[in-house]
Amino acid sequence: MENYTYNSPTLQLEALNVSKESVYPVFLLFLFSYLFIIVANVSIAVLIFIDKNLHQPMYLLFCNLPFNDILGNSILLPRLLIDMLRPPSELFISYYECVVQAFTTHMFGTTSNTVLMIMAFDRYVAISNPLRYNTIMTSKMVMKLTVSAWGVAFALVGILLGLTIRLNRCRTMIRNPSCDNASLFKLSCESVLINNIYGLTFTVVLLTSSIGCMVITYTKITVVCLTSNSKSLNSKALKTCSTHLVVFLVIVLCGMSNIALHRFPQYSEYRKLSSILFHIVPGSLNPIIYGVQSKEIRNFLFKLFQSKKVLPSL
Rank of each mutant, 00 (worst) to 15 (best):
I75M: 04
S191L: 07
A126D: 15
N3P: 00
P130G: 08
L163I: 06
K295C: 11
Y34M: 01
K308R: 14
C98N: 12
S242K: 03
R132H: 10
R298A: 10
P88V: 01
F92G: 01
K186T: 15
S19F: 00
V100G: 01
P87V: 00
A149P: 00
S89M: 05
Y24P: 00
V310K: 10
P78L: 14
N7Y: 04
W150C: 04
L193R: 06
C179K: 12
V142Q: 15
N258H: 14
E97G: 13
L31P: 03
T135Y: 08
T164M: 10
K220N: 09
S257R: 11
A155E: 13
I159V: 14
Y95V: 05
L311H: 03
P87N: 02
G255H: 13
P57I: 02
R298Q: 14
L85T: 07
L261V: 00
V26C: 10
H244C: 09
G151M: 10
T227I: 13
I174V: 13
P282Y: 09
S235A: 12
P25H: 13
I48M: 07
K303R: 11
N181L: 02
S43A: 15
P57S: 09
K231H: 11
V246C: 08
L301M: 12
I221Q: 07
P265M: 01
D122A: 08
N286V: 15
K231Y: 08
